Simulated assay, not measured.
Amino acid sequence: MPIEFQAGGLPLALEVNHLIVAGWTGRDAGAIAHHIRELAAIGVPAPSATPLYYRVSAPLLTTAPRIQTVGGASSGEVEPLLIQAGRARYLGLASDHTDRALETHSVALSKQVCAKPCAPELWPWEEVADHLDAIVLRSWVEDAGAWVPYQSGSIAEIRPLEELIAGSEIGALARDGAAAMLCGTFAAQGGVRPAAKFRMEMHDPITDRRIRHEYQCLTLPEVA
């Protein structure tokens, strides 16, 4: 089923056949170590290498305003979204929603069991490629009815996207329909925690454009 996007003000339907979640992508070694410690505090094992490229089911990528998860231990992470469709490339906004309870057992499985919400707007690569590092991403979680800042950072804090493109081999995957990659995230203010509602934004200060998306997490009962 194609995903309906808007790119450059025009409708764009993409059949995404491959989905990658790039992890441990911080450009600063200290920031990576901080994120590893942050997740270790909730029982997540350290990665075998950095970065890592987790393959997950392509249908997990969705622009829906609601997703469903089992149990209440999942949370979102704002990330740049890169989509390669033939020779065309786009930059978007997504959340690597992850089951934190399962993450203590297997990071790869924890990413596979949750939908990956994304904004329906994309920016053509050629419009941002010369100033990627200036682009800022932020997220908020709803707490007691108020939106609370959760994450903030720029693409300059993530490994160069061209490096992630090469390491993930997304170009080769895109020979068989579109391929998408979530490119890494930023530390959570106040620590990683679940929330029923997640809001995210990507701001290009050079053109003063923004992409925004918000979604709600509906919790299904965890039956033993």
Rank of each mutant, 00 (worst) to 15 (best):
L12E: 13
I165T: 05
G30I: 04
A88P: 07
R212Q: 12
V21L: 13
A108R: 03
L132G: 02
G71K: 13
E163L: 14
T50A: 15
R37H: 14
Y53F: 15
R66C: 10
T219A: 14
A29S: 13
A40C: 13
R27C: 12
E163Y: 12
I67V: 14
P47T: 10
V128C: 00
V78R: 09
P149F: 02
P59S: 09
R138L: 03
A46D: 07
P47K: 09
L182S: 09
G26R: 15
C183I: 03
Q112R: 06
V223A: 10
P45C: 08
L220H: 01
A40S: 15
A178I: 04
G191L: 03
E162I: 11
A195H: 00
A196C: 02
G76D: 06
V16P: 03
A180M: 07
D208G: 02
A41N: 11
F5R: 07
A174E: 04
A73H: 14
G191E: 04
G171D: 09
A41G: 15
S168A: 14
Q6N: 11
R87K: 09
P194Q: 03
E163V: 12
L122H: 05
R175S: 09
A172S: 02
V223P: 02
W24E: 12
R100V: 02
W125F: 07
G153P: 06
H35M: 12
P205Q: 04
I206N: 06
S154G: 15
A179R: 00
P59F: 01
L132Q: 03
Q84R: 13
E142R: 14
A85T: 00
P124E: 05
D28W: 04
L60P: 05
A101V: 13
G167L: 12
W147P: 11
C183D: 01
A46M: 01
G30Q: 12
H131T: 03
A187N: 03
C217E: 13
R89I: 01
K116S: 08
M1F: 11
W24N: 14
L10Y: 07
